[in-house]
Amino acid sequence: MTTFKLIINGKTLKGEITIEAVDAAEAEKIFKQYANDNGIDGEWTYDDATKTDTVTE
């Protein structure tokens, strides 16, 4: 398992969460579901060097 981080730069929700996932694709799926569940819809970027997804509304 690898640690992945999501940075949220939303209009109403800001912060970050960290998860353990098998790979980047699994982490992205989990993060996008989390964002959807919390009403966050924005531009996504991924930095492989830091294993960090960022969503900005």
Rank of each mutant, 00 (worst) to 15 (best):
T12N: 10
V55D: 05
L13W: 15
G39W: 06
G39T: 03
G39D: 05
I30S: 02
D48A: 13
T45R: 07
T54Q: 05
K29Q: 08
E16Y: 13
K32N: 06
A35N: 03
W44D: 02
G39K: 03
I19Y: 02
D41G: 05
T50Y: 07
N38L: 15
A27F: 07
K29V: 04
T50M: 07
D23C: 11
E26P: 00
D53R: 15
N38T: 03
T12I: 11
Q33A: 09
A21L: 09
F31N: 00
V55M: 08
K14F: 10
Y46C: 14
K29W: 11
A27N: 00
N38D: 02
F31Y: 01
F31P: 00
W44K: 01
K11Y: 12
T52K: 06
T3V: 12
I30W: 13
E26N: 03
D53V: 15
E57R: 02
N9I: 13
G10S: 08
F4S: 10
G15M: 15
E57G: 03
A35P: 01
A24C: 12
K29T: 05
A35H: 02
E43P: 04
K14M: 08
I8P: 00
T52Y: 04
K11M: 10
A35C: 15
T18S: 06
E43S: 09
D41I: 14
G10Q: 03
T50Q: 06
V55S: 08
K32F: 03
A27S: 00
Y34T: 01
M1Q: 05
G10A: 07
A24K: 13
F4N: 10
Y34I: 11
E16P: 02
I19H: 00
M1S: 09
L6D: 04
D47M: 09
T18Q: 06
E26F: 05
K5D: 05
D53I: 15
E57N: 05
V22R: 13
G10H: 06
I19D: 00
E57S: 07
A24D: 01
D23R: 01
K51G: 08
K29S: 06
I19V: 09
A35K: 02
K51W: 08
T3M: 10
Y34S: 01
A49C: 14
K5Y: 12
Y34H: 02
T45D: 08
N36L: 15
A27Y: 05
A21Y: 12
T52N: 02
L13K: 07
T52G: 05
T18A: 03
K51Y: 07
G15I: 15
Y34K: 00
M1G: 05
K51L: 08
T12H: 13
T52C: 13
E26S: 11
F4M: 01
I30E: 01
N36I: 14
A49F: 10
K51F: 09
E26G: 03
Q33D: 05
K29A: 10
E16K: 05
A49P: 05
D47C: 14
A35F: 10
E43T: 11
A27W: 06
K11E: 09
T3D: 05
K51A: 07
N9C: 15
K29L: 11
T3E: 10
N9W: 13
I7V: 10
G15C: 15
K32H: 09
I40C: 13
D47R: 04
K11D: 05
D47L: 08
I17V: 07
E28W: 13
D53Y: 15
Q33G: 02
T3C: 15
Y46Q: 01
K11C: 15
I7T: 01
D47K: 04
Y34G: 01
D47Q: 07
V55I: 11
I17E: 00
T12F: 14
I40E: 02
N38S: 07
Q33W: 06
N38K: 08
I7H: 03
T12D: 10
E26R: 03
K11A: 09
D23H: 04
Q33V: 05
A49G: 08
I30M: 06
T56M: 06
T3P: 02
D37F: 09
D41F: 14
K14I: 12
N36D: 11
K29F: 10
A27Q: 00
L13E: 04
D41P: 03
T56C: 10
T56L: 05
T2V: 13
A25Y: 09
A35Y: 06
K5L: 10
F31T: 00
A35W: 10
K29Y: 05
A21M: 04
D23M: 02
T2M: 12
W44P: 01
E16C: 15
F4L: 02
W44F: 05
I19P: 00
G15Q: 13
Y46L: 06
D48I: 12
T18M: 08
I8H: 00
D48Y: 12
K11W: 10
D48V: 11
I8V: 06
F4I: 14
L13T: 06
A27K: 02
T50P: 03
T45V: 11
T12Q: 09
T56F: 06
N9L: 12
D37R: 04
G10F: 13
T3L: 11
T50S: 10
E57Y: 02
T54C: 13
K29I: 08
K14C: 15
K29M: 09
A49I: 10
T45Q: 07
E20P: 01
T54N: 04
N9F: 11
V22G: 03
K51C: 14
E26T: 09
G10E: 01
T54L: 07
L13C: 15
Y34Q: 01
D41V: 14
T45A: 07
N38Q: 10
E28A: 12
T52M: 05
F4E: 12
E43M: 13
L6H: 01
I8Q: 00
V55A: 07
D53L: 15
K5G: 00
G15H: 13
I40V: 09
E20K: 10
D41E: 13
I40S: 02
E26W: 08
K29N: 04
D48C: 14
A25H: 09
T50R: 05
Q33Y: 04
G39I: 03
T2D: 03
I17K: 01
T2E: 05
T56D: 03
V22Q: 10
V22C: 11
E28N: 08
D48L: 11
T52V: 06
